[in-house]
Amino acid sequence: MANPFRHRYKRPRIPWGKMDISATQTDDLIACPNCDVLYRIKAPARGERARCGRCHEVLITPRLGAEGRIIALALAVLILTIGALSFPFLTIRAAGVSHSASIFSAAAAFSGGPFFLLSFAVLCLIVLVPVGRVLLLLYVFVPLARGRGVGPLTKQAFTLAERMRPWSMAEIFAIGCAVALVKVADLAEIAFGPAFWMFALLTLLVVAQDSLICRWTIWDALDKEAEA
């Protein structure tokens, strides 16, 4: 039995075992980024995933037409973001007084004096980083999907987009809204603005988009395009 964990997973994995390694021929190998185990690449079929047998990290998970779907989702995210930014987010009413907040005003909430830096950080986390990521992904995937090869900065753009991933906190902001609502519920009456629903949808799209990105497949494609 080559793999002690095989019985626990139904999905096929890259088999490990004895292999002859010559230092010059490494282009058909893959090392798990989490635990360094070495595998010979056996590309999984569409819809299947190759996991590391030791730490179960997903190594390769090619998706059918991933480029097109990533582009479609990126455009949807961009349009929804513009909408979410331009409409009021939440409206509060108490004793005849009402006040609406937009996403910008939430980001600018800390703008007074020493909180300037925090205000900028919040703006980055909920607007600039998510939007920047989408633009970078469009720059990478539009030429790739149209067979136009890769631009001079494509690899840097994709690297940056992947680096931004943990700092894109739109979905956390959406949950934060729910907590904030409960906190002021007994103080005043709250109404959702159109931007709130756009933001909720946006959150789902970003999660869907992230699940489509298989780093190994994309780097492999970029590499082949660059050579061609």
Binding site: I92, A94, A95, A106, C177
Partner: peptide, 9 residues
């Protein structure tokens, strides 16, 4: 941030 932006009555 949300509370600060919202609750300004």
């Amino acid at each position: 941030a949300i509370l600060t932006a919202l609750v300004q009555l």
